[in-house]
């Protein structure tokens, strides 16, 4: 049922942005930002359930849930940066889009440094 809502919002914002393209070009960007936000809000409920299930599995399985939290952080950064990059690309500003992409990648790498160091430690321990 939710997919119909998402497709509906997408089509309505598509039609509105096509109409507005002749009169006012800059309003197309506002429409794409707002429709992106609405669609992400629509699928937040399901996202919440997935995240809670992941955290409960991590706690049950005994592995310290620190890594799961890091993974969640990385997916959060990925979602937000992809949201901004696609809007900038839509508006034709590829330079800004690539800068946001670069920033997102740097943040993700900086967050995953503890994971990498832990991985190397376990490898050296094995050998």
């Amino acid at each position: 049922m939710d997919i119909i809502k998402i497709i509906g919002v997408g089509f309505i914002s598509l039609i509105i942005s096509v109409i507005l393209k002749e009169y006012k070009r800059e309003y197309v960007i506002y429409i794409s930002i707002i429709s992106g936000a609405i669609i992400i809000f629509l699928c937040f409920g399901k996202l919440k359930e997935i995240i809670d299930m992941l955290i409960s599995i991590a706690n049950k399985s005994g592995t310290n849930s620190y890594f799961i939290l890091l993974l969640l952080k990385i997916t959060g950064i990925a979602i937000l940066s992809e949201y901004a990059v696609s809007i900038c690309k839509d508006a034709g500003e590829n330079a800004i889009a690539s800068k946001i992409d670069l920033g997102g990648k740097i943040l993700i790498i900086s967050i995953s440094i503890p994971i990498i160091s832990k991985l190397l430690e376990t490898i050296t321990k094995i050998m």
Binding site: I19, L20, I31
Partner: peptide
Amino acid sequence: MDIDLLFKIAAIGILVAV
């Protein structure tokens, strides 16, 4: 957080254009 925000922005855009 629903669809009428889109219509509000479209209305403002068309109004300003007219």
